[in-house]
Each structure stands twice: as structure tokens, then as C-alpha cells.
Design a binder for these strands. Structure first.
Lengths: 192, 192
DNA sequence: TCGAATGTCTAGCGGTGCTAGGATCGGGTC
DNA sequence: GACCCGATCCTAGCACCGCTAGACATTCGA
């Protein structure tokens, strides 16, 4: 049995290597540069090996997205747990979210922009994605205001953050004034 | 001279045909289906003809984006001019914006998601893009609130709309509740 | 020890964006 | 009216893409 276990372990290890390498390459040179050939070369295996782990390139992007979603949720929770009071918590949440997007643009794209074959806002949505939304909901529910459904409020706040993140990264918004924008967003949207 | 003029006219006409065909194909089957070969076949010319009009596929996307930006600006202005009072105007603006994104997903992508080689938020930003932002600014400035720079407020409001538009279209947000989301957005962000 | 199963690779398919170089066509000149 | 020359367009091909069939080696179990 130990032989099979070792093989299974090595296989899982290689799968992690593929995902990590894809992520690294994407952050270094953009997702366009993540081709199956380059990826195979970097992990020092041939192309078909990739297809014994994943159905295709989409699934590799999806794997990076799930990993990233877990990190995003953790980053948001870490930032909000240090803050005192609802207002500070929401501000910290917003900055943590935008920071994550700015520091990990390729991963952020994998989660929200690219097609990783993932289901969203459905029953079969993968756990990390649901959990990332839950992390937002935890801190945002308390500032939704009376008579406003927390889920709806979270969706709106999240959409605003997402808009700021993507427009900034794509050069559609000048990167200065992130502080004032967040301040205004929290001031207006959150009821404290 | 008339011969040259005719040729120039025909050339401009063909350029319009390329852009219109690219847009049509993108709306019908998505941008992935817009390949230089398919596009060439549809306009009944060979591939290299495309490159005598545009530097490459990016520039074709950019041309569709500029056309779309002008329409978006017009749609926003038309909707806001019919509304009475600041609050109704902003609500109408939001719905017009989201409607445009929902009805012209490929064009919206060309403007804001894809790389059309266009400069944003800079001096050499093409006029249609500047004008689209101006169209938003016109109606949003009056609800920015005291002491808030209208440009900053417009950026934030726009980012929120963009987030709603993209997350909805990508299946990240359930398509119901668009009305309540817009209502909440206007209620909170706009000062009336 | 030998057959079977597993694992990996080489080679190749049809597609992509883009371009070099040759053919063809039309306008201006003698 | 014949010719030349430049503009215009197409054929053919490059290097690359995602993905896969089939040959090969290696390892396992009987």
C-alpha cells in the first residue's frame, strides 16, 4: 500500500506545482504568457502531463482562482478582525480587498475576469468562493442599515469594490485617490 | 481628383464594414469567435486587407469600443434628459448604463474589459471615451454632495455601476434584484 | 520471469495572429 | 491606342496556440 500512497502523494505534489507555476508565470508575465507549452517546460514535464491532472487550461485557471479566493477571504478576515468598531472594520475590509487585487492582479483576474469554468451564485459554487462572499458578508451585514437585506447590501458593496479594482488595474481610473474613493464609498454606503 | 475621392470613399466604407462586422460577430458568438480569418471571410476580402486598415486585431476591438462609447454616452444623455429632478435623473442614468451593458455585452467588453490599445484617464484619451465620462459627470455632479469633488464622485459611482454590470454579466451576481440594487445604490451614494 | 497496467513522451492536428512576395488591375503619359 | 508604373489584393507561409493519438518505457502483480 505504501507504494501507492507515495505515488499518490507525488501526484498531488505535482498538481500543486502546476498550479503554483501557472500562478507565478501569470503574475510575472500575464495570463497570455501562460501557455501549456511554457507551463510544461517550467515544471519539466511534457504537455500531456498537464492533461492528466486537469481537463484543460480552463481548469488550471480555475484552480488558481480557488486558491486565490481562499487567500482573499483570509486577507479580508485578518484585516477586519484587527479593527475596532463597524466603520473601521468596513474601511479595513475595503482596503484589504483592493490591496489584494492590486498585489495579485493575475490571481484576481483568474477569480473574477477569466473563465475558469467555475459556477457562481449557485448551489454547486465551490466552497472557497462561497466562503469569500461570506467573509465580506460577516463585516458588511452590521452596516447594511435597517430594512436592507444584508446579502443585497454585500452584493452592492462588493460590486463597487470590484469596479474600483478592475477599473484601476486596467488603467481606466487614475491610481491616485484610492484613499479618498474608499473613504467616500464607506461614508455613503455604510450605515454606522 | 474624383477618382481618388471615390477610392477614398470606398476605403472608408470598407473600414466601417470591418468594424460593423466585427461587432456583429462578437455580439452573435462572442469575441473569441472574432478571428481575422472569419472576419475576412464575412467581409469577402482576404485577411491582409484587414491589416491595411488596422494595425491588428487590437485596433479593430478599439474601433468597436470607440463606437460603443459614443452610443453609451448618447444613451445616458437621452435617459437623463427625460427625467425630472436629480434623483430621477441619477436613477435613469444607472438603468440606462446597466441596460446598455446588458444589451451590448460584446461592445461593453470591448470598451472596458478587452485590450483595445486605448488610453484611459490620460491626455491622449480618445474623445469618445472622455465624452462618455463627461455624460456621466453632467448628471452626477449635482448629487455629489457638499465638499465632494464631482470627478471623484463620478469615478466612484461609475465604478459601482461597472462592478454591477460585469459581475452580473459574468454570472457572479444573480440577475434578479437589479432594481433593488440600483435603488439602494442611488439612495446611498447620491445626495439629493 | 513474464504479461499487464501504468505512466510519460514524441509527433501531429486544426486553429490563431500576422506578413512576405508575387499577381493583377487601373490611371496617367506618350 | 499602347505602354508603364504604382496601388491593391491574394496566395502561401511563419511561429505559435490548445489539445490528443499512439508509441515507448517502466513498474507492478501473478
Amino acid at each position: 500500500m505504501s507504494v501507492q500512497e507515495r505515488k499518490q502523494r507525488e501526484r498531488a505534489e505535482r498538481e500543486r506545482l502546476i498550479v503554483a507555476t501557472a500562478r507565478e508565470l501569470a503574475e510575472q508575465q500575464g495570463w497570455d504568457a501562460v501557455t501549456t507549452r511554457r507551463l510544461a517546460e517550467r515544471i519539466e514535464y511534457s504537455q500531456p502531463v498537464l492533461y492528466s491532472h486537469f481537463r484543460g487550461k480552463r481548469e488550471i485557471i480555475g484552480a488558481v482562482a480557488l486558491e486565490g479566493a481562499a487567500e482573499l477571504a483570509a486577507a479580508v478576515r485578518a484585516a477586519t478582525s484587527d479593527a475596532n468598531g463597524p466603520r473601521e472594520r468596513v474601511t479595513a475590509l475595503a482596503h484589504a480587498y483592493l490591496d489584494f487585487a492590486a498585489r495579485n492582479p493575475a490571481v484576481y483576474d483568474a477569480i473574477f475576469q477569466l473563465d475558469g469554468g467555475l459556477a457562481f451564485a449557485q448551489e454547486d459554487t465551490p466552497a472557497p468562493l462561497k466562503d469569500a462572499f461570506a467573509a465580506l458578508l460577516e463585516s458588511l451585514a452590521e452596516v447594511a442599515g435597517d430594512g436592507v437585506e444584508p446579502g443585497l447590501f454585500t452584493e452592492l458593496f462588493w460590486a463597487s469594490l470590484h469596479g474600483l479594482a478592475t477599473l484601476t488595474r486596467a488603467g481606466r481610473l487614475p491610481p491616485e485617490y484610492i484613499g479618498p474613493r474608499v473613504e467616500l464609498l464607506v461614508d455613503r454606503l455604510a450605515v454606522v
